[in-house]
Design a binder for these strands. Structure first.
Lengths: 205, 205, 205, 205
DNA sequence: CATGAATGAGTGTTCATTCAT
DNA sequence: TATGAATGAACACTCATTCAT
């Protein structure tokens, strides 16, 4: 009579431990033993849920992306146009401790990805998804006439992506500088620059 | 008479090897053996020029910063105001292969720094220097009346810093997207937004 | 169910290997690899049972002391006075192969201790314990009137300690000279010199 | 025209450095680099004066023995009998800082010798010489009628040797316990036990 | 002779991984 | 499934030694 274990739940517990360790000590210190200890599990149990360490890391990165992606979608559910875009962006920026932790994870993975084809693929996939999400919202806003004529959807998308990455790093490395107020101001400056008169009226003052 | 060796030159050779290894395979693969092999030296030589690996890495990071800093200063030597600021920013952005490599180094170190007090200190120092450089140029531009009234020097500085970091990551991770054209366009958009009429006349169309 | 391993037993096995290696080749050759090989284990196992090499060495030294100390106490259990003291000393002297090996270990550690605060502390602790044991037995003998009047307990203790150390070295370095017969003769000479008439009657002819 | 260098003088300088390093930090820290640095010389010079490290150590040990031996012979030059023996012994015991340092060197070498046939041979040679010196003095004293009838020359010699080794270790490891007073008292106790009435009159009260 | 740069084997240690229980 | 003992390659680092200058 096999013990019933919810594999996905257990995997999530382990990935939670991965986040805690990385958030606290950095990827360099995220050894399998440290992860297992943090999860309150034995050494060997990781092998039951992940094929190897790269799998753990890749799963962690993927789940982190999924979490952020879901939150972004949920946040904008009942909103449209530039307002929806702004709401989504507010979810993507490191505005509170939880999201600063997520940004820490992300920054830690950047360096890892530069040495691992698997991780870089995941990063690319995620980037595509983020890009598509933002691009879709921008197109929708454009169709609603909230963007100024001649606005380049791709360029705006790229500006937002750069803003997320740049602010993520700043928030992680120099938390004192990247205050929420300043982050929102920067976001609004970008949006304002691209918005039509109608779009500006939709956005908060 | 002993064999004459220029210690600083040899240190630089080793650091060059560090850059090549990190640029090619990522920090994770930048072991002391790999670095020595890349430099065409034996294992033990590193000990003659660096106290330990942390010293190698810290020296590499510092030299990378120095290189970029020197290039920025030299580039803007005979220029003033917003034009000087723009020139400096063009040196800081990953617009060609050399600077994309530098950005790779930088991104690789970000993750390392999150687990190493020494590296994080170096990063902070460098950030201060970059900040001061940009801030000084912005103030100079403001005094020349090239910034629009009410411009917040600090906020502009921060926007530029975020732009550099965000574009560095993009250029490293998704080189196809962060084209030089687009990068320059984003820079000019930021400058344009803060420039006064006089400032706009000074900047290139 | 995990493989059941008696950690203390395994630690002891490893320390046995340490003794064999040191006894055969000296501390200098007692590398972690050599110890592991001698124990029939792989390189990495040592990390399961000891925090580092200093821990291995310190544990080895401590266990050696414990073994000798226990044997000394057990040997004198049903004896009193100078007879008990003599019995205890006979356990401390390198009179057979087992105890010559122990002396080898000890001599090897002397030099190590001169360069290691941890080991020197252990040596000091052990010395205190040995001193106290002997001193206690001497006082007891004195109370029984087995020491000649005016005997200095401290001085006698010191003489016995010096005898143990001096004979340990001799037995290790020049085994042919420090024969058991001669060792016992030297011990008895010391005891005889301090014994009262009553004490002499108690001691073996 | 080759530079004139007194090879022996230079060798002695290096060996002095060896003593200082060992005396200060123990054999374990006596690396060739450390020795060269201590001697104020460059790395490579050692190769001109010694064939390898074992040669350095062996030479150091030999010279240490020679020094002590010469001092012992000189001290007893105009003396005879038990008095001469006592004088010689006083030179062999660690009664002042200089000789405690020599004892440190000696103790450090003991452990090394247990792993090195070369060193152990040197130790044996030295032991023979010390033995012969003491044995000769004892025989001379016996011939002068200063030893009690039935005294065993060999046994007395051995007792003195054990005393030297035991006290050397004590003085090095627990300097507070092995005071000069106590050392001399122990020596005199041994001599007194073996002396005839005539011998006792010759010795100092 | 003297220098000190260079070598490379060897050290202690860490760690992802495997596997008997 | 779960355990944790065991493995062995890889790591950073040390050091006696060699050798061109």
């Amino acid at each position: 009579m096999p013990k019933i274990v919810d594999r996905d739940a257990r995997r999530d517990e382990i990935l939670d431990a991965v986040y805690r360790v990385i958030g606290r000590q950095g990827v360099v210190s995220a050894t399998t033993r440290e992860i297992a200890k943090e999860a309150g599990l034995s050494n060997g149990v990781l092998a039951h849920y992940f094929s190897d360490k790269e799998d753990i890391m890749a799963s962690g990165l993927r789940r982190s992306h999924r979490t952020v992606g879901r939150r972004m979608r949920e946040a904008a559910q009942c909103q449209v146009g530039l307002v929806a875009l702004r709401t989504v962006m507010l979810e993507a920026l490191p505005l509170d401790d939880q999201r600063i932790l997520e940004a820490r994870i992300e920054v830690n993975f950047w360096g890892q990805a530069l040495g691992s084809p698997v991780l870089v693929d995941i990063q690319h996939d995620e980037f595509e998804r983020l890009w598509d999400t933002l691009y879709g919202l921008i197109q929708a806003a454009a169709e609603r006439g909230e963007l100024r004529p001649g606005a380049d959807d791709e360029e705006l998308t790229h500006e937002l992506v750069v803003l997320i990455d740049g602010l993520s790093l700043q928030a992680v490395m120099y938390p004192a500088r990247a205050t929420p107020t300043r982050q929102v101001a920067m976001l609004d400056a970008v949006l304002d620059r691209w918005a039509s008169a109608k779009g500006r009226r939709a956005l908060p003052a």
